[in-house]
Design a protein around this nucleic acid. Sequence first.
DNA 1: ACAGATGTTTGCATTATTGCAAATATGGTT
DNA 2: AACCATATTTGCAATAATGCAAACATCTGT
Lengths: 286, 286
Amino acid sequence: MDNWDDLRYFQAVAEAGSLNGACKKLGVNHSTVFRRVKGLEEKLGVRLFERRDARYILTGAGEALLGRTGQVASAIDEVDRLIVGGDQALEGTIRITAPDGFAYYYLPPLIAEFGALYPGIEIQLLANSDDLNLSRLEADIALRVTSNPPEHLVGRKLWSMPWNLYGSPQFFSGSIGRFGIKQLASYPLLGPERNLLRLKPMQWLEKHVDKLNISARANTLMGMAALARSGIGLALLPADVAEGLQELGPTERRFESGIWLLTHPDLRSNARVRTFMQFLTERLMP
Amino acid sequence: MDNWDDLRYFQAVAEAGSLNGACKKLGVNHSTVFRRVKGLEEKLGVRLFERRDARYILTGAGEALLGRTGQVASAIDEVDRLIVGGDQALEGTIRITAPDGFAYYYLPPLIAEFGALYPGIEIQLLANSDDLNLSRLEADIALRVTSNPPEHLVGRKLWSMPWNLYGSPQFFSGSIGRFGIKQLASYPLLGPERNLLRLKPMQWLEKHVDKLNISARANTLMGMAALARSGIGLALLPADVAEGLQELGPTERRFESGIWLLTHPDLRSNARVRTFMQFLTERLMP
DNA sequence: ACAGATGTTTGCATTATTGCAAATATGGTT
DNA sequence: AACCATATTTGCAATAATGCAAACATCTGT
């Protein structure tokens, strides 16, 4: 897309249903809209509108495109709202990103509760599988599992998440004692892949365990948990993704990750964000 | 925002960290980028960059803006991907929208499971409280609770969701028999508000129950469920939001809502969407 | 100190976009 | 039929955006 503004014209026409309506809404001339839309269709090589009965009617491709431009438009609305000022109204959108485990097990009931308290606020829950995309905050609030949060974000540590070895209940139905490295080596294990290798507990695992014992690998913690649930082997996991799994006693070395609730410095003055962060802190702090 | 394309320039500079890098990436002239960014800052009335050490460094406001433009950019990436063609790769984003109850209780485990199967696909879960924003599909897939789905969408009915009267377990710990309208009238009730009034079961409730019996109201089903959980009264709810509540026997008139899994006709050829819809259908069909 | 890279600013020529007007077509309404 | 609203298309003038060049400032690294 070489010119984002074309989409603005497209959307105006799609919503107005006619060139005339669109050009009034946009405050520009008749022919400008015509030429823009025509140009966009040529650039994309797709017909976006059916010209029937002196009306602009979306084609199928147009419908699909409108869905996406709707996303663009609402993102830009948020830009406007952000810029205008403090944004003190308790209405609008909050985007929160969290690792899979939190996104799927811990947060939903809290979001539901918050939604009942503040019906005007729409929460978007973005589940992160890679867990490490810290360069840019594409959400307003981030729940992160890390030992050292990035400096340009502000927030607080809520608690620590312990890591343990987990397996399916069927997998290990006998006497469960204390596990050392040697005992560990006698069971099939699940290993990390790709970006999971960056996590310290995983590095420890790679270092101390014979690779021949690894029976399967996954590139997300949820994936490893799923493998473990299916009974393939034992997995070293943080407690939040271990739903439905049985803990098999602590390893000699005990791992913990810090749970941080983070946001941009500038969003601390935003009423929605402040309210929601406070709410989450109250509910999640031990 | 009078020109969406300004954000493209802003983002290029922010990512490149310098004018020079940005102008190369954009394929335009030095001064053009300079004038655009300057113009944007003037239009917004906010400094977006600190010019220090011959580098463009984001200010706080710039950081916040970058978060939002990141959303815009990824939405536009999806536009590009959509246009290119069939979009047969099992990588990218799927946006699914569902009523609160489904979004918070039913879908998360399924999404987690799907995510383990297809790590390249990122699922965005958009919870809808209003339930009736059907005019445009701002998601790729919609799980809707309705008796008559809109004609321009395609999909299938998965099953029926029964409505019942619910209360907190503490609220009613005695002999629970069959409820008729007369018995109903002797208990405090929770009522609908605003757009909830459009739902048929709610209209029935409003019609047959004395308004003086309504002890509280909410404008979302999750809100009503939350009120009920707190013991304020009985609520007429679909089963999916009644987590933690006790069913108090069917009403004389039994209500059911159809659960539909819907998408745009054009997205049926999209491999991601097709795969995910098939997965959901298999898991959710009775 | 020096070279090299980048940012800032300006003037001007070139190009692209837009506004305007006009002519034509289409379809619906009265 | 007459009228109205809208779309389509074109030519031209006005305006805006861009490319180019140049000059100067600032910082980096050697």
